[in-house]
Computed example of a mutant assay.
Amino acid sequence: MSNLARALPVSADPDHLSTADFQRISSLIGEQVGIRLPPTKRLMVEGRLRKRMRALELNNLRAYGDYLFRQNGLDSELPFLINAVTTNKTDFFREPEHFHLMEKLLVPELLTLRAGERNPQLKIWSAASSTGAEAYTIAMVLADMAAQRRDFRFAILGTDVSTEVLAQGRRAVYPAEMIAPVPQTMQSRYLMFARKAGIRPDIRIAPELRRLVRFGRLNLMSDTYRVDRDVDIIFLRNVLIYFDKPDQAAVISRLIGHLRPGGYLLLGHSESMVGTSITMRQVAPSVFQKI
């Protein structure tokens, strides 16, 4: 970097977004997907957008801002912009207490409520599925239960606003180091290992499990969701912390409308305070039942 570049304030350095362009991106992402990007996130956003800048063969982030807002590039670039700035932290068996509770309490109670049905189908929705680790974790737990009980079927929907992570969920291919939290018995049943000399080993979810999980794009900020209204369990974990309180309340209200009576909504443990305003019965920390 030249002495001149080092002397420039961030807003005047062409390798950074102008203050006005960052504010426009921040407002746009807030309006589109509900995620708030305060000034403290500016360097993170710039770091993520440099990949898009290079993909578009632009010289610097100032040129990227020009492309978005002064050269009519926003319409075509918006999906890639959303992909770049949304946070997609996910792991297999993240917050494992929820999966233990699903196995030991939630699913048995749901099946008791539907005791009059022959071989009922449970519908589970991972409402911010990221790359699919949560959805496939749910599938592993339920597949074990279904094999033991033989009295229910299940289908899992994973949705996210990012097309990039949805594509990975459909491929169901993950770095081998991600599967450390998966119990060994489940690894042998539900994962396929591929090791080729000279490359990092990957794993893929077994096809019999992939068939039970489908993925689709959904923006939680939309006024309506194209999802069934008889869902049994909705996972929405560690997402609402990025939303402001009015958006949190609106999203939760819409989600509740897609639960069948007796169904459950699971939030992240870090979102326990969000649940204080939910008009549902709390059955465990960050776990609520529609009554």
Rank of each mutant, 00 (worst) to 15 (best):
M1V: 02
S2M: 01
S2K: 01
N3H: 03
L4R: 11
A5L: 15
R6L: 14
A7P: 07
A7G: 15
A7H: 13
P9H: 05
V10F: 07
A12P: 02
A12V: 04
P14N: 15
D15N: 15
L17S: 08
S18I: 03
A20F: 05
F22E: 05
I25A: 04
I29P: 01
I29H: 06
E31H: 09
V33L: 04
P38M: 07
P39N: 12
A55I: 00
L58D: 07
R62A: 14
A63F: 15
Y67W: 15
Y67L: 15
F69D: 02
Q71D: 14
S76I: 11
E77H: 08
E77I: 12
P79T: 13
A84H: 04
T86A: 06
T87Y: 00
N88K: 05
T90L: 08
F93L: 14
F93M: 14
E97A: 14
H98E: 13
H100N: 08
L101D: 09
E109H: 11
E109D: 15
E109V: 08
L110S: 12
T112Q: 15
R114E: 01
R114F: 09
R118I: 00
N119W: 03
P120T: 10
K123E: 14
I138P: 01
V141H: 04
L142Q: 09
D144Q: 10
D144A: 11
A147I: 15
R153I: 12
R153W: 00
A155D: 12
I156W: 02
L157H: 04
D160C: 11
S162W: 11
T163A: 14
Q168S: 06
Q168Y: 15
R170S: 14
R170P: 04
R171E: 13
R171H: 15
P175H: 13
P175I: 09
A176V: 14
E177P: 01
E177H: 15
I179F: 11
T185D: 13
R189T: 10
F193M: 14
A197T: 09
G198Q: 07
I199K: 12
R200Y: 07
R200H: 07
I205E: 04
L209E: 02
R210I: 05
R210F: 01
V213P: 10
G216C: 05
G216T: 06
R217K: 12
L218P: 02
N219R: 02
V227D: 03
V227H: 06
R229E: 12
D230A: 12
D232S: 14
I234A: 05
F235E: 04
F235L: 08
F235S: 05
I241S: 00
Y242T: 03
P246C: 05
A250D: 00
V251F: 06
V251N: 00
S253I: 08
L265K: 09
L267V: 03
H269Q: 10
S270Y: 00
V274C: 01
V274A: 04
G275Q: 01
T279G: 10
M280P: 03
R281N: 13
V283M: 09
A284C: 12
P285S: 10
V287W: 00
Q289N: 13
Q289G: 13
K290M: 11
